[in-house]
């Protein structure tokens, strides 16, 4: 995107493509849907809270309806009872959509390796950004949002395009 402003202060013009204009608009109006099931959800609250303030990055309008959201933020353990619910919520979201997997549990099952815990949500939904940690700090969430913005800005392929991984 190229911007030109006249020397005398008169309004100039900007050159861009439609795609990058849309990407620019999307980038700063991400609506996250927080699928917070467990301890990581507390840190999600912290990220939206006063100290870390995720809204500085244009992602503060939390939607509790998947149909209005762009980013699915899965924070916490997903077990086999919950897995169909998560899948359904993902399917309900409109394209384009991105998925952040927050915390060791959502990424890989974490230190729960037993009969009930799903060993990573990427077994059932495509994941764009993983945040390590148990729980990750709120900075981790902010970083993940910025990475999603990068994906949007550069037009990099989403995980859903490579799904399912063979």
């Amino acid at each position: 995107m190229a911007v030109r402003i006249e020397k005398d202060g008169a309004p100039g013009y900007a050159l861009t493509t439609l795609e990058s204009l849309i990407a620019w608009g999307r980038k700063y109006s991400l609506y996250p849907f927080t699928f917070a099931t467990a301890c990581c959800g507390i840190e999600v609250m912290g990220a939206f809270g006063t100290h870390y303030d995720l809204s500085r990055f244009g992602a503060e309008v939390v939607r509790f309806s998947p149909r209005q959201a762009d980013v699915l933020l899965v924070a916490g353990t997903i077990n086999y009872k919950m897995a169909p619910v998560l899948k359904r919520i993902y399917d309900q979201m409109l394209e384009p959509k991105w998925v952040i997997s927050m915390g060791a549990c959502a990424c890989s099952g974490g230190f729960y390796n037993n009969y009930t815990v799903l060993q990573g949500i990427d077994k059932i939904v495509p994941v764009d950004v993983y945040i390590p940690g148990c729980p990750p700090n709120p900075e981790g969430i902010i970083d993940a949002v910025v990475r999603i913005q990068k994906i949007i800005e550069t037009g990099a392929p989403r995980a859903a395009d490579r799904w399912p991984i063979k």
Binding site: Y80, K81, A83, P84, K87, N113, N114, Y115, L118, K123, I124
Partner: peptide, 12 residues
């Protein structure tokens, strides 16, 4: 009951 014997409801 083995600790990690899973009975998935969904997925592979």
């Amino acid at each position: 009951y083995p600790k990690a014997k899973r009975q998935p409801t969904i997925g592979p």
